[in-house]
Design a protein around this nucleic acid. Sequence first.
DNA 1: TGCCAGGCCGGGT
DNA 2: ACCCGGCATGGC
Length: 224
Amino acid sequence: MINDYGIHMQIYKALRARFGHRRWWPAETPFEVLTGAVLTQNTSWNNVETAISGLRRAGCMTPAAMAAMPQGEFQELIRPAGYYRQKAARLKRIAGWVEAKCGDDVDMCALAAVDTGVLREDLLGLKGIGPETADSILLYALKRPVFVVDAYTARVLGRHGLISPQSGYHEIQAECEANLPHDVDIFSDYHAQLVELGKRYCKRTEPRCNDCPLQPVLGTAEID
DNA sequence: TGCCAGGCCGGGT
DNA sequence: ACCCGGCATGGC
Protein backbone atom coordinates (compact mmCIF):
# COMPACT_ATOMS: atom_id res chain seq x y z
CA MET A 1 0.00 0.00 0.00
CA ILE A 2 1.25 3.44 -0.92
CA ASN A 3 -1.02 5.58 1.18
CA ASP A 4 -0.75 3.90 4.56
CA TYR A 5 0.22 7.16 6.17
CA GLY A 6 -2.46 9.37 4.73
CA ILE A 7 -2.45 12.85 3.35
CA HIS A 8 0.87 14.06 4.71
CA MET A 9 2.79 11.26 3.07
CA GLN A 10 1.13 12.10 -0.23
CA ILE A 11 1.98 15.77 0.18
CA TYR A 12 5.53 14.87 1.04
CA LYS A 13 5.92 12.76 -2.06
CA ALA A 14 4.52 15.51 -4.25
CA LEU A 15 6.81 18.13 -2.75
CA ARG A 16 9.85 15.93 -2.93
CA ALA A 17 9.17 15.18 -6.58
CA ARG A 18 8.89 18.92 -7.17
CA PHE A 19 11.79 20.24 -5.09
CA GLY A 20 14.11 17.26 -4.69
CA HIS A 21 15.62 16.17 -1.39
CA ARG A 22 16.45 19.15 0.83
CA ARG A 23 19.64 19.14 2.85
CA TRP A 24 18.67 20.21 6.35
CA TRP A 25 19.75 21.38 8.88
CA PRO A 26 22.71 23.31 7.35
CA ALA A 27 25.36 23.00 10.07
CA GLU A 28 28.74 21.40 10.63
CA THR A 29 28.05 19.93 14.07
CA PRO A 30 25.12 19.21 16.41
CA PHE A 31 26.22 22.05 18.68
CA GLU A 32 26.09 24.36 15.69
CA VAL A 33 22.51 23.19 15.04
CA LEU A 34 21.61 24.16 18.58
CA THR A 35 23.27 27.55 18.20
CA GLY A 36 21.55 28.24 14.89
CA ALA A 37 18.20 27.16 16.31
CA VAL A 38 18.40 29.85 18.97
CA LEU A 39 19.81 32.51 16.67
CA THR A 40 17.14 32.03 14.00
CA GLN A 41 14.23 32.75 16.33
CA ASN A 42 12.06 35.24 14.45
CA THR A 43 15.09 36.04 12.32
CA SER A 44 15.98 35.39 8.69
CA TRP A 45 18.49 32.61 8.12
CA ASN A 46 20.68 34.92 6.09
CA ASN A 47 21.39 37.02 9.17
CA VAL A 48 22.04 33.89 11.21
CA GLU A 49 24.63 32.67 8.71
CA THR A 50 26.58 35.87 9.15
CA ALA A 51 26.60 35.40 12.90
CA ILE A 52 27.55 31.74 12.66
CA SER A 53 30.48 32.52 10.36
CA GLY A 54 31.71 35.04 12.89
CA LEU A 55 31.42 32.55 15.71
CA ARG A 56 33.37 29.96 13.74
CA ARG A 57 36.13 32.42 12.90
CA ALA A 58 36.37 33.46 16.53
CA GLY A 59 36.72 29.83 17.61
CA CYS A 60 33.51 30.22 19.56
CA MET A 61 31.44 27.39 18.10
CA THR A 62 32.04 24.98 20.96
CA PRO A 63 30.24 24.70 24.32
CA ALA A 64 33.22 25.65 26.51
CA ALA A 65 34.41 28.50 24.32
CA MET A 66 30.94 30.00 24.10
CA ALA A 67 30.25 29.65 27.80
CA ALA A 68 33.58 31.27 28.66
CA MET A 69 33.44 34.16 26.21
CA PRO A 70 32.94 37.60 27.79
CA GLN A 71 29.36 38.78 27.37
CA GLY A 72 30.21 41.98 25.50
CA GLU A 73 32.46 40.26 23.03
CA PHE A 74 29.89 37.55 22.43
CA GLN A 75 27.17 40.13 21.83
CA GLU A 76 29.22 41.71 19.07
CA LEU A 77 29.77 38.33 17.40
CA ILE A 78 26.07 37.53 17.18
CA ARG A 79 24.84 41.08 16.58
CA PRO A 80 23.92 40.41 12.92
CA ALA A 81 21.32 37.87 14.06
CA GLY A 82 19.28 40.49 15.91
CA TYR A 83 17.95 40.54 19.50
CA TYR A 84 21.62 40.21 20.24
CA ARG A 85 21.62 41.18 23.92
CA GLN A 86 18.86 38.69 24.78
CA LYS A 87 20.26 35.94 22.63
CA ALA A 88 23.81 36.43 23.93
CA ALA A 89 22.79 35.99 27.55
CA ARG A 90 20.55 33.02 26.82
CA LEU A 91 22.90 31.26 24.44
CA LYS A 92 25.84 31.54 26.80
CA ARG A 93 23.80 29.96 29.57
CA ILE A 94 22.61 27.22 27.24
CA ALA A 95 26.22 26.57 26.19
CA GLY A 96 27.10 26.25 29.87
CA TRP A 97 24.35 23.68 30.29
CA VAL A 98 25.68 21.69 27.34
CA GLU A 99 29.21 21.86 28.72
CA ALA A 100 28.00 20.58 32.08
CA LYS A 101 26.29 17.64 30.37
CA CYS A 102 28.74 16.85 27.57
CA GLY A 103 31.98 18.66 28.26
CA ASP A 104 33.40 20.51 25.27
CA ASP A 105 31.92 18.03 22.81
CA VAL A 106 30.38 19.61 19.70
CA ASP A 107 28.66 16.28 18.96
CA MET A 108 26.97 16.33 22.38
CA CYS A 109 27.36 12.54 22.50
CA ALA A 110 26.50 12.31 26.18
CA LEU A 111 22.92 13.33 25.38
CA ALA A 112 22.45 10.19 23.28
CA ALA A 113 21.78 8.27 26.48
CA VAL A 114 18.90 10.52 27.58
CA ASP A 115 15.28 9.62 26.83
CA THR A 116 13.66 11.92 24.27
CA GLY A 117 10.80 13.02 26.53
CA VAL A 118 13.14 13.79 29.40
CA LEU A 119 15.50 15.65 27.10
CA ARG A 120 12.66 17.74 25.70
CA GLU A 121 11.60 18.82 29.19
CA ASP A 122 15.22 19.62 30.08
CA LEU A 123 15.55 21.80 26.99
CA LEU A 124 12.25 23.57 27.63
CA GLY A 125 13.48 24.37 31.12
CA LEU A 126 16.28 26.49 29.65
CA LYS A 127 15.48 30.18 29.13
CA GLY A 128 15.51 30.88 25.42
CA ILE A 129 14.33 27.44 24.32
CA GLY A 130 10.64 27.05 23.49
CA PRO A 131 8.77 24.25 21.71
CA GLU A 132 10.09 24.85 18.20
CA THR A 133 13.69 25.37 19.24
CA ALA A 134 13.61 22.28 21.47
CA ASP A 135 12.17 20.13 18.71
CA SER A 136 14.63 21.47 16.13
CA ILE A 137 17.48 20.48 18.42
CA LEU A 138 15.93 17.06 19.07
CA LEU A 139 15.35 16.31 15.40
CA TYR A 140 18.21 17.97 13.56
CA ALA A 141 21.00 17.80 16.14
CA LEU A 142 20.12 14.66 18.09
CA LYS A 143 18.25 12.71 15.42
CA ARG A 144 15.14 12.01 17.48
CA PRO A 145 11.87 11.38 15.60
CA VAL A 146 10.07 14.59 16.60
CA PHE A 147 8.19 16.72 14.08
CA VAL A 148 9.12 20.41 14.05
CA VAL A 149 6.38 23.00 13.60
CA ASP A 150 7.38 26.46 12.51
CA ALA A 151 5.69 29.52 11.00
CA TYR A 152 5.87 28.07 7.50
CA THR A 153 4.42 24.73 8.57
CA ALA A 154 1.48 26.36 10.30
CA ARG A 155 0.81 28.77 7.47
CA VAL A 156 1.03 26.22 4.66
CA LEU A 157 -1.07 23.61 6.43
CA GLY A 158 -3.53 26.25 7.61
CA ARG A 159 -4.09 27.73 4.19
CA HIS A 160 -4.85 24.31 2.80
CA GLY A 161 -7.32 23.52 5.53
CA LEU A 162 -5.25 20.65 6.89
CA ILE A 163 -5.35 22.07 10.40
CA SER A 164 -7.96 24.19 12.10
CA PRO A 165 -7.07 27.89 12.19
CA GLN A 166 -6.90 28.05 15.98
CA SER A 167 -4.75 24.98 16.51
CA GLY A 168 -1.62 25.52 18.54
CA TYR A 169 1.84 24.04 18.32
CA HIS A 170 1.12 20.66 19.84
CA GLU A 171 -2.03 20.04 17.83
CA ILE A 172 -0.23 20.74 14.57
CA GLN A 173 2.63 18.53 15.64
CA ALA A 174 0.28 15.72 16.61
CA GLU A 175 -1.57 15.98 13.29
CA CYS A 176 1.66 15.56 11.34
CA GLU A 177 3.17 12.86 13.52
CA ALA A 178 -0.03 10.82 13.39
CA ASN A 179 0.02 10.79 9.60
CA LEU A 180 3.67 10.05 8.88
CA PRO A 181 6.05 7.21 9.69
CA HIS A 182 8.06 8.14 12.79
CA ASP A 183 11.28 8.39 10.88
CA VAL A 184 13.95 11.03 11.34
CA ASP A 185 14.68 11.38 7.64
CA ILE A 186 11.00 11.74 6.73
CA PHE A 187 10.34 14.28 9.50
CA SER A 188 13.46 16.23 8.54
CA ASP A 189 12.84 16.36 4.84
CA TYR A 190 9.09 16.93 5.07
CA HIS A 191 9.59 19.91 7.31
CA ALA A 192 12.22 21.26 4.92
CA GLN A 193 9.84 20.73 1.99
CA LEU A 194 7.06 22.66 3.71
CA VAL A 195 9.47 25.55 4.32
CA GLU A 196 10.50 25.54 0.67
CA LEU A 197 6.87 25.53 -0.42
CA GLY A 198 6.12 28.37 1.97
CA LYS A 199 8.97 30.50 0.73
CA ARG A 200 8.05 30.07 -2.91
CA TYR A 201 4.26 29.90 -2.98
CA CYS A 202 2.78 30.72 0.38
CA LYS A 203 4.22 34.03 1.52
CA ARG A 204 2.72 35.67 4.54
CA THR A 205 1.94 38.90 2.71
CA GLU A 206 -0.04 37.17 0.02
CA PRO A 207 -3.61 36.16 0.79
CA ARG A 208 -3.27 32.60 -0.45
CA CYS A 209 -0.99 30.12 -2.15
CA ASN A 210 -0.65 30.97 -5.81
CA ASP A 211 0.10 28.30 -8.37
CA CYS A 212 0.46 25.83 -5.56
CA PRO A 213 2.16 22.54 -6.52
CA LEU A 214 -0.08 20.74 -4.03
CA GLN A 215 -3.23 21.21 -6.07
CA PRO A 216 -2.92 17.83 -7.81
CA VAL A 217 -2.82 16.17 -4.40
CA LEU A 218 -5.42 18.26 -2.61
CA GLY A 219 -7.85 18.76 -5.46
CA THR A 220 -9.60 22.07 -5.89
CA ALA A 221 -10.98 22.34 -2.37
CA GLU A 222 -8.62 25.07 -1.25
CA ILE A 223 -9.48 26.98 1.86
CA ASP A 224 -8.18 30.55 1.94
C1' DT B 1 10.91 52.64 3.08
C1' DG B 2 8.24 50.24 5.98
C1' DC B 3 7.56 45.49 6.65
C1' DC B 4 9.19 41.02 7.50
C1' DA B 5 12.11 36.95 8.92
C1' DG B 6 12.76 29.13 10.37
C1' DG B 7 10.18 32.55 18.49
C1' DC B 8 10.41 33.20 23.29
C1' DC B 9 9.63 35.46 27.74
C1' DG B 10 7.07 37.85 31.34
C1' DG B 11 3.15 40.10 32.89
C1' DG B 12 -1.55 40.67 32.43
C1' DT B 13 -6.45 38.99 31.87
C1' DA C 1 -5.21 28.80 29.15
C1' DC C 2 -4.56 32.56 25.94
C1' DC C 3 -3.07 37.53 24.65
C1' DC C 4 0.24 41.15 24.21
C1' DG C 5 4.49 44.13 24.09
C1' DG C 6 9.30 43.84 23.79
C1' DC C 7 13.37 42.23 21.74
C1' DA C 8 17.05 44.15 16.81
C1' DT C 9 19.47 43.31 12.51
C1' DG C 10 19.68 43.12 7.36
C1' DG C 11 17.11 42.44 2.81
C1' DC C 12 13.75 43.62 -0.32
